[in-house]
Amino acid sequence: MIRRVLLIAVPYLWLLALFLVPFVIVLKISLSDIALAIPPYTPTLDFSAGWEGIRTFFAGLDFENFVWLTQDDLYWKAYLSSVWIATFSTAITLLVGYPIAYGMARAPLEWRPTLMMLVILPFWTSFLIRVYSWMGILSNEGFLNQLLLWLGLIDTPLIILNTNTAVYIGIVYTYLPFMILPIYAALERLDDSLIEAAEDLGCSRLTAFWLVTVPLSRNGIIAGSFLVFIPALGEFVIPSLLGGSQTLMIGKVLWEEFFSNRDWPVASAVAVVLLLLLIMPIVLFQRNQQKQQEAET
């Protein structure tokens, strides 16, 4: 009995310490008011004042900051733009990642560990360094433009850095492995004779792909898409390094509220809403994983 309670308690304690406690703190700050103090918000809980202190503490909390988020159109535009950028990048990542995963799954058995290694290899260097390298590649005098000019494909350098295009490139590049690996896992398990059976029953190669390969790698596609979409939605580093002034993403807004405006309460409110926005895809993702596990047993 005690063992069972312990077994169940451990993950909940984990969740409590690493998710719930920080969330409650952020939620509390989001309900506070900005103040010129350290920390830069009020009220703070004053236990020395006893019961009365707790009463004034709760009385000081309100939803003002959330109301503010609806009044300034910067915020909802930023949320919407983030959802759009995340969705679009996820779609491109899928389009790029699927053929790579497919190629890996079809490669001779002895090559596969090497190919897997190549996909994971970028993680061995710092994420920041890799994003900075993209600045070197995409800038006006960067490698890409020099190459294209040298090949004579263009006369004037393309402006890519500091545009949304650069952000898409950055997101696709960064999260590609998260798309490839689950799709590869699904495709690798696919029995070749299923494709042959489809062809035997009258499918061309292409229809066999649509009717058999794609549906049977669906779980991999879903898992990969969530693994890209969820972090891309709140992405901050990529839009601030590769994006331009017109790139509007909620991660960037959040950062500015915290560090430029030092408005912790509004920043926290932005974070809370972002989290609520993410809960839906996260729950869907969990559902997909669970269904997949059930199908396998």
């Binding site: 029995d191 299923l194 042959e196 035997d200 061309s204 058999v212 049977l216």
Partner: peptide, 20 residues
């Protein structure tokens, strides 16, 4: 003639039923 254009059908050793 490719497999999808032959009036021949095969029952596979592994059955190869479409699981979905």
């Amino acid at each position: 003639v490719p497999p999808n254009r032959r009036a021949v059908n095969m029952m596979f050793q592994s059955y190869a039923l479409f699981p979905h």
